[in-house]
Design a protein around this nucleic acid. Structure first.
Length: 826
RNA sequence: GCCGGGGUGGCGGAACAGGUAGACGCGGCGGACUCAAAAUCCGCUGGGCAUUGCGCCCGUGGGGGUUCGAAUCCCCCCCUCGGUACCA
């Protein structure tokens, strides 16, 4: 057989040009079609100007899936765009002393070219770029809609401030007290900010999680993030303040008689009001210190509890006990009511605090079977038990008592059942330049006034001299931009100087793609009806609690106001795993980052993308090996040699004649078509590739190295034409060339997926396994339709079996049709 | 701590619904081709014992269990990766 090697460089370049020239991936979103599939993979963030291996791992396999759907007759929409606002572009611009807009546009140009190398079916007419006015006009429009519906509000409150980035961050962007992107510490700061009231949607976001086909882990993470907690709200009147009471939230109302003090979070406004004069200075100092400390510092100190006494007292509504009111930073200002009732005997945190500050500990829940004693207590008893020392509730089991206590409260005007969520409102103001301007105007006379819709977009000014972060938005320093007139009264006014969190940009891009050609409307309702929800959404699991909550929220909001036909963006979602090197995560610091270009130059992009798919289960991730890629390279070249050895000038036939092929070849071919199809439908790329390799191995056995003269060239060509079609989604450039050489008309991805003949998979004789007591002892050939009795007789006939059953009593025989016979003996 | 994923040859990884563990590939060994090498093709390749025959024993992180039969189901434990963490 020829030893010519597949000339990937020339072939790939040629077909890419051809696809472009023929506009081969043109998608008509308005076309009538009964099987539409919106395959969406998260768009890219052009922070660096090169595609890294993660992009290939993300985009190549999804395109393979999309191509498979297309060959199966679906009209597939597979768009691509750029999430191009944000800090990385700004930081990069600072580094190279350029302008964010310029570096962003350059990166997009470059990356688009690289994306084309992947060979995906992107129709670039639908591209969206979030940093361009024709996109962010609609980001601003969305803001106005939210404002109109009372879901965009300005609040003063404590926010996560990053001193390094000089901007506010959303809760979702802060992990363990540090910025999740850069690892920089974050402090609390009081600021006025715009918030989107996502908390209005908690119940809906939670309920719908049960209806969607998303990875279980992601659903769990969202549930935890929203953090619905059922419990009881209890009000404790404060001594000497007739109209003031401290409201707490608790999930353990059964421990109410064990409360020995109350705690306010340092952020709580009541601290200032309630603190007695003699203790003012101490409390103020504590509060200040607690708030200025980063969360890192707060948690670093071995979790030792700190706090101060306010000098004030409250009253337990149930038993009238006098309770000292403390301030401590182990109580979070942003959860529940920002204050708790402390039950040291039954809550570990309260226990530690009480021990440290020598506050009383009172046991009100006893376990069943033994009795706890305060003196001997080394930790809080947090399990349920039997209520003791709890007035007329004593003797009740925790679960019963909790309900009884909660039921008693409303009558005393002291509280009742309550639900609390962990999810907070989404803070969207950012004090940075490279983002979408907030379309709001601040007028001295009229207050906050929205920019009229017809004035959108509020353009982000290009001519900025200094966009560097300085703690306040750089836009605020631009006199000619910040100063404007009030749309309401015409008087002098100022624009909002902040820009929006980039998660706002990506919260509706899936809808904007469908109207990317229209500047007159944000979305195209007709197309949305046809294409939504997204058939398959693919992206990293790291977006579980950020982007994926926001995109659900915004989709739902747009649904509620009649702009979107569906309430949930994606019916099905999967996460790609991570690609590792030697089992380790790739990172610059480890110096183990694989550079795709090196391998694409050497093997071509088809081999590269195919090898990535071969390394492992797409959802679990794979491990990159510099040597392993040669396996795919060999495979491609093995197919290539078959192609060049059996070129054709006629269109390959549709149906194959079984008589032209050895039985095993014919069967393997049909099996390959079936298995590859099944695997592609469920994104099992690695096993699909194995199946194709098996077929090629069979072909080489049949045809031999030099090509068997007995084999009919036309028949081989027909078979290869089937192989090329099932291979096309994996190696689009290669298969385009192979298809052409076999006499096929372009393009191969416009061909229908081949049929397989189920009858070809049926074997007349099967190798049955014979087991004795479940252990493999022999194999026999028998007709596929042999009866149980026949199989048992054959098994007993076997010489090898004889030795294992001689002198033993046969207990029973188990026959698994088509597979095995198991003789059970004693 | 809690939630989720994962632990299978020298390596990456297969195994549908409990039914031949290790498909496919890398690497390794042997052979063919070659003056030679590369490339290519073919064969072998979990461990141990036996290799005078076929064969026999062990083996899917560890320990128990259910079953005729367990990588797969149940219980306990270990390791690892990811998420989250004073949430009252």
């Amino acid at each position: 057989m020829s030893e010519e090697r597949y000339p990937f460089a020339e072939v790939e370049a040629r077909w890419r040009t051809r696809w472009d020239e023929d506009d081969a991936y043109h998608v008509d979103l308005d076309a009538e079609h009964d099987d539409r599939r919106y395959v969406l993979v998260m768009f890219s963030y052009p922070s660096s100007s090169r595609l890294h291996i993660g992009h290939w791992w993300n985009y190549g396999p999804t395109d393979t899936h999309a191509r498979y759907l297309r060959m199966n007759g679906a009209l597939v929409f597979e768009p691509m765009g750029f999430d191009s606002f944000g800090l990385p572009a700004e930081n990069y611009a600072i580094k190279v002393d350029s302008h964010p807009k310029q570096v962003t546009e350059q990166s997009i140009e470059f990356i688009r070219g690289q994306l084309k190398q992947i060979g995906a079916m992107y129709d670039w007419r639908w591209e969206v770029v979030t940093s361009r006015p024709n996109y962010y006009k609609w980001t601003q429009w969305l803001f106005l809609k939210l404002y109109e519906h009372g879901l965009a509000v300005q609040k003063e409150g404590l926010v996560n401030w990053s001193p390094t980035l000089q901007t506010v961050l959303a809760n979702e962007q802060v992990v363990n007290g540090v910025d999740e992107r850069t690892g920089n510490p974050v402090v609390q700061r009081k600021m006025t900010q715009w918030y989107f009231r996502i908390t209005e949607y908690t119940e809906q976001l939670l309920a719908e999680l049960k209806q969607i086909d998303w990875p279980e882990g992601t659903i769990k993470r969202q549930e935890n993030w929203i953090g619905r907690s059922e419990g009881t709200s209890i009000r404790f009147p404060v001594e000497g303040h007739e109209h003031v009471s401290i409201e707490v939230f608790t999930t353990r109302p059964d421990t109410l008689f064990g409360v020995t003090y109350l705690v306010l979070a340092p952020e709580n406004d009541l601290v200032e009001r309630l603190t007695v004069r003699a203790r003012t200075r101490e409390v103020e100092e504590y509060v200040q210190q607690a708030l200025s400390a980063t969360e890192m510092e707060r948690t670093a100190a071995e979790r030792k509890k700190t706090g101060v006494f306010t000098g004030a007292y409250a009253t337990n509504p149930l038993n009238g006990e006098r309770l000292p009111i403390w301030v401590a930073d182990y109580v979070l200002g942003s959860y529940g009511t920002g204050s708790v009732m402390a039950v040291p005997a039954h809550d570990q945190r309260d226990f530690e605090f009480a021990r440290r500050f020598e506050l009383p500990i009172k046991i009100v829940i006893q376990p069943v079977g033994y009795v706890n004693d305060v003196e001997d207590l080394t930790e809080a008893y947090v399990e349920p038990g039997i209520m003791v020392d709890s007035g007329d509730f004593s003797g009740l089991r925790s679960e019963v008592g909790a309900k009884a206590v909660t039921d008693r409260l409303p009558g005393m005007d002291a509280g009742g059942p309550a639900v609390t969520y962990r999810l907070r409102d989404w803070s969207v103001s950012r004090q940075r330049y490279w983002g979408c301007p907030i379309p709001m105007i601040h007028c001295e006379k009229c207050g906050v006034v929205p920019v009229p819709e017809e004035d959108l977009p509020v353009l982000l000014p290009d001519e900025i001299r200094d966009f560097r972060p300085k703690g306040t938005s750089p836009l605020g320093a631009m006199e000619n931009w910040i100063n404007t007139t009030c749309p309401n009264c015409g008087g002098p006014a100022k624009r909002d100087a902040d820009t929006m969190d980039t998660f706002v940009d990506s919260s509706f891009y899936h809808l904007r793609y469908l109207a990317a050609d229209r500047d007159d409307v944000p979305f195209d309702r007709r197309r949305m009806k046809k294409w939504l929800p997204i058939h398959l959404y693919v992206g990293g699991p790291e977006h579980s609690t950020g982007h994926l909550i926001y995109i659900r929220f915004i989709t739902r909001f747009l649904h509620d106001i009649g702009w979107c036909p569906v309430a949930e963006p994606a019916k099905k979602m999967i996460h790609q795993g991570i690609i590792t090197k030697d089992g380790m995560r790739m990172s610059k610091s480890k110096g183990n980052v694989v550079n795709p270009d090196k391998f694409i130059d050497r093997y071509g992009s088809d081999v590269f993308r195919m090898y990535l798919m071969f390394t492992g289960d797409y959802r679990l991730g794979g491990d990159w090996s510099d040597e392993g890629i040669t396996g795919i390279d060999r495979f491609i070249n093995r197919v290539w040699r078959l192609i060049v050895h059996f070129p054709g000038d006629t269109r390959p036939a549709g149906k194959l004649d079984a008589r032209n092929y050895p039985e095993v070849v014919y069967r393997t071919l049909h099996n390959t078509v079936k298995e590859v199809g099944d695997d592609l439908a469920e994104l099992s790329f690695n096993t699909a590739i194995s199946r194709m390799m098996e077929l090629v191995n069979e072909l080489y056995k049949w045809l031999g190295e030099d090509g068997d003269s007995d084999a009919d060239a036309g028949a081989v060509r027909e078979l290869l034409a089937v192989l090329v079609r099932v291979m096309a989604p994996f190696a689009p450039h290669f298969c385009e060339e192979a298809w052409a050489r076999l006499g096929g008309e372009p393009f191969v991805f416009q061909q229908p997926w081949p049929d397989y003949d189920p009858a070809a998979l049926v074997r007349e004789t099967i190798t049955f396994v014979i087991q004795v007591n479940g252990k493999l002892r022999d194999r026999i050939e028998a007709p596929a339709d042999a009866s149980d009795e026949q199989l048992e007789a054959l098994a007993l006939d076997s010489e090898r079996i004889a030795g294992h059953i001689v002198g033993k009593k046969r207990v029973k025989t188990i026959v698994v049709p088509g597979k095995l016979v198991n003789l059970v003996v004693k």
